[in-house]
Design a protein around this nucleic acid. Sequence first.
DNA 1: GTAAAGTACATGACACATCATGTAACTGAG
DNA 2: CTCAGTTACATGATGTGTCATGTACTTTAC
Lengths: 155, 155
Amino acid sequence: MNDTTEWLSPAEQHAWRGFVRLHQKLSARLNRDLQAQSKLSGADYEILVALTDVPAGRMRPQDLAQEIDWEQSRLSHQIVRMAKRGLVTREECAEDGRGTLVAVTPAGRQVVEAAAPKHVATVRRLVIDALGPDELATLAKIYGRILERLDDEPS
Amino acid sequence: MNDTTEWLSPAEQHAWRGFVRLHQKLSARLNRDLQAQSKLSGADYEILVALTDVPAGRMRPQDLAQEIDWEQSRLSHQIVRMAKRGLVTREECAEDGRGTLVAVTPAGRQVVEAAAPKHVATVRRLVIDALGPDELATLAKIYGRILERLDDEPS
DNA sequence: GTAAAGTACATGACACATCATGTAACTGAG
DNA sequence: CTCAGTTACATGATGTGTCATGTACTTTAC
């Protein structure tokens, strides 16, 4: 590596550090809240929301993975754990012998429906309410731009 | 829970989803890059940067934890793993018999010095370069505001 | 129809994070 | 001095994420 590295300016460093810290603390906080209030991890919550969002309450793992942007393996492990706790079940897939269907159980539905309002309230209180409408739009725009870069790049 | 939950508006939801997705994908990406290029996890990198940032190259775990905003237990486990790989060592603390000092090893220093330029380049390419200077300042301001809220709240 | 290639998902190993709890050393009131 | 409380850190259990790899089924080329 040569010495032409362009290090971050103080302003850039400040913004970047803030980004990292915020990300860390906020997700830690949201996970702890979910766990304390609803006995759910963030991962559990994300799965349950995705499943209850579709009318049938069941999806192919591959579709679910794409929907929430998870790796297939991660999802598979997560489903196993949630099935053990009775939040979801596996069903056979008629159209494709290799496939499966993941379905929310009534218990899972009940849990997420109780959890969602509290979670949303926390998000609103901690994040949304801290932003003006213009800032909200700016953030969304910036995030979209960075996400594009991520998707464009090779790896 | 009553039914007065104030759900997120479409614009709010869009921004929030972007926030979550960006956080997930970006940190996954940065971790993978670090791992691939330098055999370091993001956690390893953070520790090494903090340690090499101080002249002595060694710190009390409690100070280190505060510096990078980690839980004490997390840090302790991480130190164990990094010590096994020869990136850091534990030293006895003269002033306080309960205490320890964590020090970067020469090997650790070498690894992080090789890793840093590549990491910074990735951050710049993916994030910083996607932002105008005004946007950078806006982000920093917003992050600061949300971080304050996080720190203010009970838990 | 069959063999090769691809797809859908599972699994084991390992790194990581968190929680609850433990141990040793320090500090201060008496 | 001594003992109660606190501080600094370690440790075990458990849940989670990633990687590499495995298995069963399906599709495609021939």
